[in-house]
């Protein structure tokens, strides 16, 4: 699957926040075999220059970066942040987040569509963090998005895929659009499930960064997305309500 014409080395997108140390972050990115790493922008202090050290760390990892607009609550803020990110990271890819509600960090889909339209017109390749709402998805595609990133559950909650029906419907409605489950994945089985549903990638941060051993968990996620993607290709059986014997009854001796 291509994302704006680019084939990723792996369907695992990894966030770079909340790791215990830069060394552990680097080890996790390598163990995950991440196809993309997400990054952000924050104020740079003249004395500390923390951003410059981080920049040299991610440059050395040699993995494509996807800057986000995390923390933005209006379309205008997100658009300005995207402009700054494009200059700093030298990429026109942007993970567009416009947050609408602070308890759930649910996207403000109205501001999201507005910002997506503006940024697409300016040549950005927008990766919108959205809900699984089909109508919003249509509007995002009409605004020029060529990728959709519905949430699995609220950011950082680790609850997995809250609305499997909705995610499956989205996949069925847009068979040709690259879809990424972004947010809410807590354990590798959630990531495998997303890939089994036919999603093209998953984006994970907290589940790896906050694990007791982030590099080991990164490897577990790598294996899970590989297993899920392979299962999808292998065409899983349909679930059914009643039992169906797997061992043939023909030729069974009468022993009763």
């Amino acid at each position: 699957m291509q994302f704006y014409g680019t084939t990723l080395a792996s369907p695992l997108m990894l966030g770079t926040a909340q790791y215990p140390s830069p060394e552990i972050l680097a080890a996790a990115v390598k163990a995950a075999h991440a196809g993309v790493i997400t990054v952000s922008l924050r104020r740079e202090s003249a004395g500390q220059k923390a951003g410059q050290a981080f920049w040299s760390l991610i440059r050395d990892l040699n993995v494509p970066v996807l800057p986000n607009t995390a923390g933005c609550h209006t379309a205008k803020e997100a658009v300005t942040t995207a402009h700054m990110a494009r200059e700093v990271f030298e990429t026109d890819w942007i993970k567009l987040e416009v947050i609408g509600e602070s308890d759930t960090l649910q996207p403000d889909v109205f501001g999201l569509v507005e910002a997506a339209r503006i940024l697409t017109a300016e040549g950005f390749k927008v990766f919108p963090y959205t809900t699984e709402d089909l109508v919003v998805a249509e509007r995002l595609l009409a605004a020029g998005c060529e990728v959709l990133m519905p949430w699995g559950a609220p950011i950082g909650s680790g609850k997995g895929l809250n609305n499997v029906f909705g995610l499956r419907a989205l996949r069925a409605h847009f068979p040709e659009i690259p879809l990424v489950v972004d947010a809410g994945i807590g354990v590798p089985s959630h990531a495998a499930q997303a890939m089994e549903l036919g999603y093209d990638a998953v984006l994970i941060n907290t589940a790896v960064a906050k694990a007791g051993d982030p590099a080991a968990m990164a490897r577990a996620f790598r294996l899970a997305v590989e297993a899920g993607a392979l299962a999808r290709l292998a065409d899983p059986m349909e679930a059914r309500d009643m039992a169906a014997p797997s061992t043939p009854l023909l030729g069974k001796p009468v022993l009763a």
């Binding site: 966030g15 770079t16 926040a17 909340q18 790791y19 972050l25 997400t38 990054v39 952000s40 922008l41 924050r42 104020r43 740079e44 220059k49 923390a50 951003g51 410059q52 981080f54 920049w55 991610i58 800057p67 986000n68 995390a70 700054m84 700093v88 990271f89 950011i155 984006l203 941060n205 907290t206």
Partner: peptide
């Protein structure tokens, strides 16, 4: 004036 730089993000 705002001055920003690369930072960790999810």
């Amino acid at each position: 004036i705002e001055i920003v730089a690369p930072m960790q993000g999810g």
